[in-house]
């Protein structure tokens, strides 16, 4: 006859609870790995880079000697790129989102466009470089200029903006839209006066996050022909250019040890700009959250 033996039960329970605690600790340490990595990265870049940031670095062009190398052409080039990328990708992305969410009938075409956007998001960024090189640089024959780079980046982040805009358009409650129709507004009036204003915080947040991805992209720009050494500032969208990540990459390729410090300094500037952009995005997200 086997009776329930309290001691055995306790022993079994104890093991299982111990096991649970051990795994909890393991899961926690795994989470910490990512954090430690981030901390090491931040510490390393800051200690190595912050000393290299002075007026010379911010206002100078790149140079063969590490002491005189500066990032000015990179920063200005990146800003020019964004001036091309931002309007193109935001207009296309928001228009696509409105079409898919408000106008498109459920059917083959809509499904196809949606799946297509999803697949585009998974295409490696360097492939967009190849696309830009053939289509913009050679077929449209605009050359290795800011316009070609900016358009390639615009196509690269188009899926990101589209999906973000779709989500914020979808989040506008149906009652508000129906109220607008009930007042006799047409579809476009409703979109323009009701849906867009309500969706705009989400769209702005998504756009900033997408642009901060674009500003850090290196591979497609290398392929569409951003220069590494350039000693004049671009004076329009048809100028040759360089960009911050391109400059950083070219410094990592230098054999002299001192260029590591220059690359770190460049990374600090790039990360500060990214941090600013992301803070603005988070600020807008928090400020306008849950209006309905």
């Amino acid at each position: 006859m086997n009776y329930i033996d309290e001691q055995t039960v306790q022993k079994n329970m104890g093991n299982r609870i111990k096991k649970n605690k051990m795994w909890r600790w393991l899961f926690f340490s795994a989470t910490m790995i990512a954090l430690l990595f981030l901390a090491a990265l931040a510490y390393r870049i800051l200690t190595q880079g912050i000393g290299g940031i002075d007026w010379q670095f911010i206002s100078g062009f790149t140079s063969a000697s590490p002491e005189r190398a500066g990032i000015k052409a990179g920063v200005v080039g990146s800003l020019w790129l964004m001036a091309v990328t931002a309007p193109v990708t935001i207009i296309l992305g928001v228009a696509t989102a409105i079409y898919l969410e408000e106008y498109a009938k459920k059917g083959r075409l809509t499904n196809f466009i949606q799946t297509n956007i999803q697949n585009l998001a998974g295409v490696p960024s360097i492939v967009f470089g190849l696309l830009g090189l053939t289509i913009f640089v050679y077929v449209f024959n605009i050359g290795e200029v800011i316009l070609a780079g900016g358009l390639s980046l615009a196509l690269l982040v188009l899926p990101v903006i589209t999906v973000a805009a779709q989500e914020s358009v979808r989040a506008v409650p149906t009652d508000v839209k129906e109220a607008s129709y009930a007042m006799g507004a047409t579809k476009w009036q409703t979109v323009r006066r009701i849906i867009l204003p309500a969706a705009i915080p989400g769209i702005i947040t998504g756009s900033i996050l997408a642009l901060s991805r674009a500003i850090g992209e290196t591979a497609p720009l290398l392929v569409v022909g951003a220069s590494t050494a350039i000693f004049t500032l671009p004076n329009g969208i048809m100028s040759p250019y360089t960009a911050m990540p391109i400059q950083i990459f070219s410094w990592t390729q230098q054999p002299q040890q001192a260029f590591q410090g220059v690359a770190s300094a460049g990374i600090v500037i790039l990360l500060v700009i990214l941090l600013l952009m992301n803070s603005i995005a988070v600020f807008i997200r928090n400020k306008f959250q849950n209006r309905y």
Binding site: A34, F37, L38, A40, L41, R44, I45, Q48, L209, S212, R213, G216, E217, T218, A219, P245, I248, F249, T252, Q260, A263, S264, I267, L270, L271, L274, N278
Partner: peptide, 18 residues
């Protein structure tokens, strides 16, 4: 999310030098 937002050129530099 911050870790996901770091440009890959930065990761590359970190891999090589750290």
């Amino acid at each position: 999310e911050v870790l996901a937002g770091i440009p890959t050129v930065v990761y590359g530099f970190f891999a090589l030098t750290f």
